[in-house]
Amino acid sequence: MNIFGWYEPDSKGKSYIKPVGKIPKGLPDFTAGWWLPLYNVGRQMTLSVIICLVDICESISIAKAMARINKYRLNYTQELRGLGLANLAGAMFNCYTTTGSFSRSAVNNSVGAKTPLANFVTGITIMITLLWITPVFKNMSQNVQGAIIIVGVLQLFDWPEFLYLWRINKLDWLVWNVSFLVVLFAGVEIGIGTGVGLSLLLVIYKTAFPRISQLGRLPGTTVYRSVAMYPEAEPQPGVLLLRVDAQLYFANIEGVRDYVTQAIEQRRSAGDKSGDPVRVVVLDLAPVTDIDATGIHFLDDLVDELRHEGGVALVLGNPSQRVLLSLKRAHLDRKIGRANINVHMADAVVRARAIADAKLKQETVAGV
């Protein structure tokens, strides 16, 4: 084991390759009892919550990676139940917290493990090793341990996913890179927490600043699509068609209000294809699955603001049953006009065109 003298210390007392050293024999003692550690309860609860979150994130992350590699569907509930039972049993023996291990899972997968029986065999092998075979590993190099883990974990580096995220969504790519770098330089716990926190910030950002699209009619159809994505889509004379791709609630109301105001000003300054100013605003509410009280107040105020902006009318299209029920409870359907709330977008546009034509006639008569 020491033929080349690599384990012998040099003049500074350091050896080239460090052995594992003595590994204590035996299994952990049974430590469960009727008492509870009531000292420093606040800190213990805080640590428990942190450990639980880290364990869940780490376990689900490696489980998803294994499921993607081996082409099977992950049962998250079953995974968490297994972790809970394992931690309850392990706590009775003062064991380290049970979680999905990146390194051991990768090694298991690399040797061809396919069922939980592999973990059972691994557990029995570790138990036998702890009871009788620990002296064998006394002179084993620590480098060997590192090499086994490195070879196993290398399979988890999904470089194609890096390029895939860059092509598909730059924000997802950013979360991936930040999480990877923080895990690499600050540790798994901080890295997972950073990734989760950044993901939550992106969710908040996307809901607070929803995508709002101006719509136009595809030639020869009654289908309305974004004019930015479909250049051939035709804006309707005197009608501004908008679609809000998020629920209407307190966090994004001001952004929607500002967009509507700016869109009307742009159409007024540039003019649409017919040269008519905006006389009717149509909101396509198909993506709006829910609306809160602030959203109802927003629609109420929007009706007044549009009327103040030269008598512009508001028409709603594709409201869901939940949104429609909220409008009725607030009696806002009466203020908007029940004829101005349509199930189909095509009907909403027909209604808007009728209102715009009537306003144009009134303006023509008044001008004459």
Score class of each variant (00 low, 15 high):
Arg353Leu: 11
Leu174Arg: 00
Val349Arg: 01
Asp245Tyr: 04
Ser141Met: 09
Arg268Trp: 10
Ala293Gln: 12
Ala208Lys: 07
Arg322Leu: 14
Ala313Cys: 15
Ala263Cys: 03
Met140Glu: 10
Cys95Ser: 15
Val365Gly: 02
Thr222Tyr: 03
Pro210Gln: 00
Asp300Gln: 14
Arg338Phe: 01
Val41Leu: 15
Arg257Thr: 11
Asp333Phe: 07
Val343Arg: 09
His308Glu: 15
Leu74Trp: 05
Leu241Asp: 06
Leu74Tyr: 08
Leu299Pro: 01
Ala186His: 06
Leu241Val: 06
Ala113Ile: 08
Thr134Arg: 05
Thr46Lys: 11
Asp272Thr: 11
Gln145Val: 15
Leu202Arg: 01
Gly42Arg: 09
Asn177Gly: 08
Gly310Asn: 10
Asp347Val: 10
Ser326Val: 07
Ala339Cys: 08
Leu201Glu: 00
Ile60Pro: 00
Leu80Ala: 07
Lys170Trp: 05
Glu8Met: 08
Val244Asn: 01
Ile124Pro: 06
Pro277Gly: 05
Val182Ser: 03
Val350Pro: 00
Val183Trp: 01
Arg257His: 03
Trp159Met: 15
Val188Ala: 06
Gly82Pro: 09
Pro210Arg: 03
Leu332His: 08
Leu53Asn: 07
Gly90Leu: 01
Phe137Ala: 12
Val178His: 02
Tyr76Ser: 11
Leu240Phe: 04
Ile150Cys: 13
Lys22Arg: 10
Leu200Val: 10
Arg353Met: 13
Gly90Lys: 01
Asp357Phe: 06
Gln214Trp: 00
Trp6Pro: 02
Ala330Val: 13
Asn75Ile: 10
Arg217Ala: 05
Ile126Ala: 00
Arg307Tyr: 09
Val107Gly: 05
Thr98Met: 11
Ile212Trp: 00
Pro210Val: 08
Ala233Ser: 10
Thr222Glu: 12
Leu88Pro: 06
Gly216Ser: 03
Gly337Leu: 03
Thr31Ser: 13
Gly255Glu: 06
Ala65Cys: 09
Gln362Pro: 00
Ile133Gly: 12
Gln321Arg: 14
Ile341Val: 07
Gln362Cys: 01
Ala65His: 06
Val282Tyr: 00
Ile150Gly: 10
Tyr16Gly: 14
Ala228Phe: 11
Val288Lys: 03
Ile341Gln: 00
Val288Asp: 01
Ala352Thr: 09
Leu283Gly: 03
Gly123Cys: 04
Val136Glu: 05
Ala91Pro: 07
Met127Lys: 05
Lys18Thr: 15
Ser226Asn: 15
Glu79Asn: 07
Ala118Thr: 11
Ser61Met: 09
Trp132Ser: 14
Tyr205Lys: 03
Phe162Arg: 01
Glu8Cys: 03
Val303Tyr: 06
Asn119Thr: 15
Asn342Leu: 14
Asp10Met: 02
Thr364Lys: 09
Arg211Gln: 06
Gly152Cys: 02
Val239Gly: 01
Val41Gly: 06
Val303Gly: 01
His344Cys: 01
Leu200His: 03
Phe4Val: 15
Arg211Leu: 08
Asp357Ile: 07
Glu309Leu: 15
Leu163Ile: 13
Gly311Tyr: 12
Ser103Thr: 14
Asn342Arg: 14
Gln44Trp: 04
Ala228His: 11
Gln44Phe: 00
Ala270Ser: 13
Leu302Pro: 04
Val107Leu: 04
Leu74Cys: 02
Leu316Met: 08
Asn318Gln: 14
Gly90Trp: 02
Asn252Pro: 11
Thr129Pro: 04
Ile69Phe: 05
Tyr16Glu: 13
Pro210Cys: 03
Gly123Ala: 05
Ser320His: 11
Asp300Glu: 14
Ile50Tyr: 03
Leu184Phe: 07
Leu47Thr: 14
